[in-house]
Design a protein around this nucleic acid. Structure first.
Lengths: 251, 251
DNA sequence: CGCCGGTTTGAGTCCATTCAAGAGGAGTGG
DNA sequence: CCACTCCTCTTGAATGGACTCAAACCGGCG
């Protein structure tokens, strides 16, 4: 059942973070795994549980989330193709949050031990996987800044920019079009706002020449202008320009 | 210049995350390092720069932060004794945020390559260091939830709880007393609020029997009650109960 | 003494929420 | 084909939590 290119999205993603030898790439693609289809709103990771396999998102969109006891829901990050959803909870032995699928999706389940063994047998891979989890953390921090210190309009635009860049990084589109399979309620949960207010903010973008919205797809006509309005700088989504494999790990 | 127990706080911290052999502990303590004193408000990590050494906080308090272009400042986490401040930026080759010292402090600078070599030569250590960065990320996510979905009063109480637990974890005190060397302005930057409003919230705690405030120290008289009010559950600060060293890494 | 950083207090404003109701669309079953 | 439901989006009016602006207070320190 394993087409030998199923795990390619993972390789592609890691290659963005640093140089990967052909042997390393092959080793990743050779990882045991099973492919599964999951449906809308299905929960992949459950708060408090420790998974025994790692989930690689092959298609679709997923979101990490936590809730307050009073029912307030906060999304903590989105995931697209190539993202390892629960490497962190696997390493820690327990999840601190839940991950939910938005729209139907396909995932590859990789046994956790196999992935971890690879990480430590091949330090280059291990280092890139580690960096991947750190970038995830960097995004989480940016969200804190976003929710804590930007007004609703800027917040929304900033999220738009992030999604645009990440969809592009995952080879899912260009910087000109963002397709967000999210209800306004879900957008609100991502931004720490109310669905009603998200609606109003979306409308306030109508007379904004830099972008054009029709339903849930947004056309970006002037990226520079949008980024400026959104207070957006994509640095937090990337590692240093020239990814060098440190001499220690050359052999 | 290297007292052989200088790096003990790092060992202690990692031992909370999982089992560490004596040999591993000794290897950590044997890491090359230099001790430095840093003064109030000094910036340890600079946004955009890639450090060549890792900073271990030996005493004092530090805070990670990012800012909006318009000057809004958001703190993203606090660090106490035993915390590795910039392992993430060292791995990624560039920092995405800054870290500032609050009050005078002592740090140990560990060459990054030495630490990383140890991480991959001794998978147990590597795994625990990795987990440490993941717990840091878990805290960042909780802050997003805190800022995004809790009202000002609960937000403040929640931060109080976190600081209490972490000071206790670092053997810096008990759950009965929290000493925060922070101005109300800094608290505001941590909570996504205004200094003025933090002041009012602090006052609203006067008629709260569970805690007692005098200046910048807070006595916790009823932890259970406080935790309930703060919507606080310390799970996000910890790993699964029984930290097992996976068979793969036994030898 | 006078300055300075931090804290406290007050009054007015505004951004975002709440509550509530209506409109549009997709899917289902009679 | 229509009636019905469910979900999402939209709109309005009123409320409120947090902000802004501004001034006064306080303790430490040169």
């Amino acid at each position: 059942m394993q087409s030998d290119s199923t795990l390619r999205p993972l390789v592609s993603k890691l290659q963005e973070l640093g140089r990967l030898s052909e042997s390393d790439a092959a080793a990743i693609e050779a990882l045991p795994h099973t492919v599964r289809s999951v449906r809308h709103l299905q929960t992949l990771v459950h708060d408090g549980h420790g998974p025994t396999y790692c989930t690689l998102l092959l298609s679709g969109v997923a979101a990490r989330e936590r809730s307050t006891r009073s029912g307030g829901r906060q999304l903590l990050g989105f995931y697209v193709r190539g993202d390892l959803i629960d490497l962190n909870s696997a390493l820690m032995g327990c999840a601190h949050d839940s991950v939910q699928i938005f729209g139907d999706a396909q995932i590859a389940c990789i046994p956790f031990e196999a992935l971890l063994r690879l990480a430590f047998e091949r330090p280059t891979i291990g280092r890139l996987l580690w960096i991947d989890t750190l970038l995830d953390a960097s995004i989480a921090r940016e969200w804190t800044l976003n929710v804590g210190r930007r007004d609703a309009r800027t917040r929304l635009l900033h999220l738009l920019c992030e999604l645009a860049v990440r969809q592009q990084q995952a080879n899912l589109g260009s910087l000109e079009k963002v397709d967000l399979p999210l209800t306004q309620e879900q957008l609100a949960d991502a931004l720490g706002l109310t669905a009603v207010h998200v609606n109003r903010m979306l409308q306030s973008l109508r007379d904004e020449p830099a972008i054009e919205r029709s339903g849930r797809t947004i056309r970006i006509k002037d990226w520079r202008s949008l980024a400026r309005m959104a207070d957006f700088d994509d640095a937090y989504l990337k590692v240093a320009n020239a990814p060098v494999t440190h001499p220690v790990f050359a052999g």
